[in-house]
């Protein structure tokens, strides 16, 4: 059965409606975002579900996961903190920010905190060069920008994520 289709019928209909019939394949990236929403990465199962919806090959779906950096083929923390350390941000101290943040979390860039909550990664320019240090937070609720950051307020933000996570768990219990 097609999990994706049964989980998000309305969204999928809306996505498909954006493109002309001959351009149906355009929906592949929106569908990949949809498939990634819940777990933060794309399972092979989802590749085949998307390929069914769009009548293309799994391989044609997979190639996009490999090409685009916002699609992930492996599990990481529930949230990804992606710090821009590109030229302009680095000129304004983002590399130091990253180092201190990682030290505070006792991980190295690219690693995930022990509790599996956040993965800290370095990324290229995010079009926020005037507001360094900055990072984008990739998680269940999409992507949000956090700008003019300090290690202090970033740790606070992580704390909030942790709390809301446990809260949700309690709620579902």
């Amino acid at each position: 059965m097609n999990d994706l289709l049964s989980k998000y019928p309305e969204e999928i209909k809306k996505i498909l409606a954006k493109y002309p019939p001959e351009g149906k394949r355009s929906a592949v990236m929106p569908l990949l975002f949809l498939a990634q929403r819940k777990e933060g990465y794309i399972r092979e199962q989802a590749l085949s579900e998307i390929s069914q919806i769009l009548d293309i090959q799994e391989t044609e779906v997979a190639t996009l996961v490999g090409f685009y950096t916002l699609f992930h083929d492996g599990k990481a923390g529930s949230y990804r903190i992606q710090v821009c350390t590109d030229l302009c941000c680095a000129l304004r101290g983002s590399e130091d920010f990253l180092t201190s943040l990682c030290e505070a979390l006792e991980i190295k860039p690219g690693e995930t905190t022990l509790d599996g909550l956040v993965t800290v990664e370095e990324v290229k320019c995010l079009a926020a060069c005037d507001k360094a240090p900055m990072y984008q937070l990739q998680g269940k609720d999409g992507i949000s920008y956090h700008e003019n950051c300090s290690v202090g307020n970033t740790l606070e933000m992580i704390e909030e994520l942790r709390e809301s996570g446990t809260q949700k768990q309690e709620e579902t219990k």
Partner: peptide, 19 residues
């Protein structure tokens, strides 16, 4: 898009938009 600077190049953008 989904993270690729090259997609700013207009023909790469069109490819990307076509899935």
């Amino acid at each position: 898009g989904a993270g690729a600077y090259i997609c700013g190049e207009e023909t790469a953008l069109l490819e990307s938009l076509e899935g």
